[in-house]
Design a protein around this nucleic acid. Structure first.
Lengths: 240, 240
DNA sequence: CGGAATTTATTTGTATACCAAAACAACAAA
DNA sequence: TTTGTTGTTTTGGTATACAAATAAATTCCG
């Protein structure tokens, strides 16, 4: 049972600046569902029966439906009138399109980050980078994945553009599951690591132009590996 | 009473490809609220009292709350636990951040569009362009605005990247109200028109690099004029 | 026997009533 | 003016009911 380790590295998705963040039930439910979708407990195209989910989450229909609407607006779920919700299916085109946008967004973020990042934040990203390399050295994919995601989220955030960071997170969420599923081969993995080294170098040097190029290339590479894994999985297990 | 003319140019926001689109109440309500927010009937920071809105829209609380959640996920509304929803306030930083992202997105879209756009779609954009110039010549701001928005939406769509177009639309929606409020002076307006001419030229020539640069600059210009108007309005009517 | 028509069972969409807890407002007291 | 205190309103959530739409099961017919 490969239950992906719960994201260890906090990146403070919404502003958790307020003390004692009281979550409302729909927010909670949405969070749980998100997690289930990420680690595959809810596969794409799975019907989301309200009754069943209500029991499973221990809430009533009203907040559940609100949660589903939220997820729908995020693109993780699709609601069809009178037919209910399903986990949003991902197609090849979606992956391509999403990574294309992610590349542009993170490219911009990198450029901004080089101009604006504080030393402390840079240090933290470096620390994460070396932790990630440690996980890579040990071959611990889950931990590597989490650290990797954290780094990218922090770069997205380091641009100091909240809208950018938020948009990046939301889009990234849509492909997170396939990202993790893409168990990269050693060659690609090593290449990714090398690219990360370059990223850190460019960021340290505050070379925005370079970082943007690296990030765009990195995302493109990631896209290819994800697409490959996606294609493989789909030829192996043909549902239709 | 400046009630902005209802968007004349369809850009097919969500896929209205299916015939007889039955809308569910929450979707409907969300649409109406969106419109009210766009044309200022609901100003930023307005409390959205459930009871009142239920009456106004003629629906019950259940679907209304779902609609509010949807709008919240889109960033048009903010729901604070136990405190209800308000129309999302916009601050200077939000405008800057949003336009920064919009610039990157539309830049990418432009580049993609140059590579992929079909002649028919290019012709349509050209047609819209000249309509827009006509509105400009007559000084019809509302019509100009609508045509302008339509052009940008079509460019965003012409990249053939659905995720990109969708993301652009959603982010643009957040600043649409201030965009319209920014009643550009003649100088800026003429400049915008000139930039649009350049856009069309670059798109016709399929010069992706150039179009990207033009679009990024255009958005930056738009940002400045919006910021100026925003600042002016805020010094004039100081609420606090 | 296989497909079409029809009945039946589920499920969704929405409304309503109800309640607790939180927020807000009004007002008295220091 | 600030601080308590006390109603009042509003929100968050549950439970229930029911029509309409979908999906499933069943019957009917060629």
């Amino acid at each position: 049972m490969t239950s992906v380790r719960r994201l260890v590295y906090n990146v403070s998705m919404p502003d958790d600046s307020r003390p004692f963040e009281r979550a409302t039930l729909p927010q909670n439910a949405a969070g749980q569902l998100r997690q289930m979708i990420f680690d595959g407990a809810l596969a794409p195209a799975t019907r989301l029966n309200e009754r069943v989910l209500c029991e499973r989450l221990g809430i009533s229909r009203t907040p559940l439906r609100e949660a589903l609407r939220m997820l729908a607006a995020e693109g993780l779920v699709r609601v069809e009138p009178n037919r209910g919700a399903i986990v949003a299916p991902i197609e090849r085109a979606d992956i391509e399109a999403t990574f294309e946008v992610l590349g542009a967004l993170e490219g911009l973020a990198g450029e901004l980050a080089c101009a604006r990042i504080a030393d402390a934040e840079l240090a933290e990203i470096k620390a994460l980078h070396f932790e990630m390399r440690a996980h890579h050295a040990r071959g611990d994919r889950a931990a590597y994945f989490a650290a990797n995601q954290a780094i990218h989220a922090r770069i997205a955030a380091a641009g100091g553009n909240a809208v950018l960071a938020e948009t990046f997170e939301k889009l990234n969420a849509r492909v997170k599951r396939v990202r993790y599923a893409a168990n990269l081969g050693h060659a690609r993995w090593d290449k990714a690591i090398a690219e990360h080294d370059d990223m850190i170098a460019a960021l340290s040097a505050r070379d925005g132009r370079a970082l943007r190029a690296i990030l765009e290339a990195h995302l493109a590479g990631k896209r290819e590996s994800v697409l490959a894994a996606f294609a493989a999985e789909h030829s192996a297990a043909a549902y239709d």
